[in-house]
């Protein structure tokens, strides 16, 4: 046996874990992932491909192979900037950016060990602010984000600069629709959890 050959992931035997994950992602995103022909156009144009642990085209392949666990723990799904270059350029018209949304949602829902939790904490802090005020209150949102990530000191130089330029209000500008917005959040959450 050639040991080198067996330890080389590029020639490792393909393991297919059934169609369930593919069908779930397709249903969630409305994108036809199974049409992927591995042209790698998405990966070529991806602005964060350099930093990500997986290329988008690799992710498409892993979905087809049902490799849910590895994929949902990837940091790449959180590094995606939702720039939509992949969706725009896919020759098979797969909404790849929409697939990324579905993967992030599934990762949180299935309580996967997140490859990079910053994006998740940011989303939570941002949406909590909208839920509360009907609009984003940056100062409150940033404080909540920093507490969630326990990363208190990054970007501390930015707040005074923004304050000086009048770009960081100290009190929230509440929307008078805030109560209605809270109701929309409640119903949308229930919808996602499959409750009536």
């Amino acid at each position: 046996m050639n040991e080198n050959r067996d330890s080389n992931p590029t020639v490792a035997p393909i393991v297919w874990r059934g169609p369930e994950f593919l069908r779930e992602v397709e249903a969630r995103s409305g994108a036809r992932v199974s049409a992927c022909l591995q042209c790698h156009k998405c990966s070529t144009g991806c602005p964060v491909a350099r930093e990500a642990d997986l290329y988008p085209s690799q992710m498409m392949r892993m979905i087809l192979l049902g490799q849910a666990e590895e994929l949902l723990a990837s940091s790449g799904i959180w590094l995606c900037a939702s720039c939509e270059a992949c969706t725009t350029r896919c020759p098979m018209a797969i909404d790849i950016a929409g697939v990324m949304d579905a993967l992030r949602i599934l990762a949180v829902e299935r309580k996967a060990q997140l490859g990079d939790a910053h994006g998740h904490h940011f989303n939570r802090a941002f949406l909590a602010s909208v839920r509360r005020h009907g609009r984003v209150f940056e100062m409150g949102m940033m404080t909540a984000y920093k507490l969630r990530t326990r990363d208190l000191f990054s970007d501390v130089d930015k707040a005074p600069k923004l304050l000086l330029k009048g770009k960081l209000p100290l009190v929230p500008k509440r929307s008078r629709s805030a109560r209605k917005v809270r109701e929309i959040f409640r119903r949308a959450d229930a919808d996602q959890e499959g409750k009536p």
Binding site: L127, V130, G134, R135, A188
Partner: peptide, 16 residues
């Protein structure tokens, strides 16, 4: 008017 949900909404809950 209220917030459109921006990027965090579509990355968290498609209905929202």
């Amino acid at each position: 008017w209220s917030c459109c949900g921006s990027t965090p909404a579509h990355r968290t809950n498609t209905a929202l």
